[in-house]
Design a protein around this nucleic acid. Structure first.
Lengths: 270, 270
DNA sequence: CGTATACTTGAATTGAGTCAATAAGTGTGG
DNA sequence: CCACACTTATTGACTCAATTCAAGTATACG
């Protein structure tokens, strides 16, 4: 199963492996595990405050810093493949990653979009159950799973932090399950977009603008539908004066409260 | 319909809360939190070997035993409601529990079926995000969340055990996401049934027989479809001589290998 | 043995998918 | 800056898997 998917991914013209630590290596195609010389320090890390690293004792944090490596990814580059031996855990520093599962017949399910500060790649089993691909140019922070496990043993706070994050992910995952199981395409898309603005938006009074990093196909494969349906539904929202779309990657919520209704109601003027 | 029943039950002022600790109390209606005198001991617990309690140091185990309470549930009884303060974590000892989310318009999504040995109810947030209802008469083991958290602090192995179980659940959850997002009703049902037999079946050579604890409506609400579609799909499988259904709750896999194909193929004679 | 509940089957309807064509971007090189 | 190629998004017409609505049948239970 995993094998087939991996093959499928590769047949689609898989891009080269990730460039690790930037400039010095960027021309070559380094093997995973190779390290570069531009190691960004944690002190300037944009997600320092809410990634795994947050809320962990100083000592643990320093040791985390020691085992970690930065990796740069270009758009659509694959970080790891479904079925690869799961040797590392990652935190996304910058950009956007899609975790995706390929079927042998070409169907694809985007399992999760990872946003900055979130981590991914931890498992019970030995192999990744999905591929990780950069949606846009991205930077991730890599932790060897073994080293992380050792640190978890030594510092229960880290273990507990990872547990909490896993639980939160489980809760999010259930939301998606509900979307996919019981909601119409319109409701799914509305929920999805709202989650994105609400996560991004700090100032509530500001005009609600959303810049989508991912394309329609990615969204469709996440929401269990097709790019055509996504386009149609967006057009319908536009027709109801709920949103406007100055360019395909930007959505402005003209009637934010009205739009919220779309999460539960689909029975309007379809 | 299961849906109406449960909603009705709730609106009518809720069925009595679970009977705690069996026989001595079974006539009365004890309040939650009250304890009875028939406290089954862990030593005879059927799931001792693979529940949270497994693989934990003796000392931690003894303390776990101290904070736990058994609770008996009758079929369709609700253990806790969506939105209740999440004060406890549970392990299912015997029976089957469905975790379910209700929409205001009557739609329902079964989020998970809990089988013996699994635990549920742990969260980051303060309130349960779903209701827990017994599918059939069931027994659960209740641990106060706070006490469990304290034990986790003291015994990292317990923490680590819970983390692993959460990760495994996350993996299962992803499988469901794929089912709901990209598979046809036939594929979903086949995957679902196979997961149940494979989990239950110890002996591989034996005839593959599956006794379903849950009704069609529950299955439909889990797989994002309708009871009618479930019935039709089962009939189709029967027509293809893949299964037989001596009674509605029992499925015999006449052509187990052929049936497995149905998880990925739907392009036969529909 | 009747009544409630769950399950199955049939017929009609529809939301969303498929296929196909057009439009709008995006990037490249002259 | 424009022409060309290429990718991504939108729109339209048609189709179909699955839902809905409506009986009918089986099964369990007091």
């Amino acid at each position: 199963m995993g094998t087939l998917q991996t093959i499928a991914a590769k047949e689609l013209g898989a891009p080269s492996h990730a460039v690790i630590n930037g400039p010095a290596n960027s021309a070559a195609v380094p093997k995973p595990g190779q390290t570069g010389n531009i190691q960004r320090t944690c002190s300037v890390c944009s997600v320092r405050e809410y990634a795994i690293c947050a809320g962990v004792e100083d000592q643990a944090f320093e040791q985390l810093e020691d085992v970690r490596r930065n990796i740069q990814l270009t758009a659509n580059e694959t970080l790891f493949y479904d079925g690869d031996h799961a040797s590392d855990v990652y935190t996304l520093t910058d950009g956007c990653i899609r975790l995706v599962k390929y079927f042998s017949d070409g169907r694809r399910q985007v399992v999760r979009f990872v946003t900055p500060g979130e981590y991914f790649g931890y498992l019970v089993s030995d192999c990744y159950a999905y591929s990780a691909e950069a949606v846009i140019p991205s930077t991730v922070c890599r932790f060897p799973r073994k080293a992380l496990a050792t640190l978890c043993d030594r510092y229960p706070a880290l273990q507990s932090r990872m547990f909490k994050l896993a639980c939160r992910e489980l809760e999010q995952q259930r939301e998606i399950q509900i979307l996919l199981g019981r909601k119409s395409v319109g409701e799914r898309l509305a929920s999805f977009l709202l989650q994105l603005v609400d996560d991004a938006g700090e100032d509530d009074n500001a005009i609600h603008v959303l810049d989508l990093p991912m394309c329609r196909t990615d969204i469709a494969d996440y929401l269990g539908t097709t790019p055509e349906s996504i386009a149609r539904t967006l057009t319908a929202f536009k027709g109801d004066h709920l949103i406007s779309i100055p360019k395909s990657s930007r959505i402005i919520f003209d009637d934010y409260d009205g739009f919220r209704q779309q999460t539960q109601n689909d029975d309007d003027d379809w």
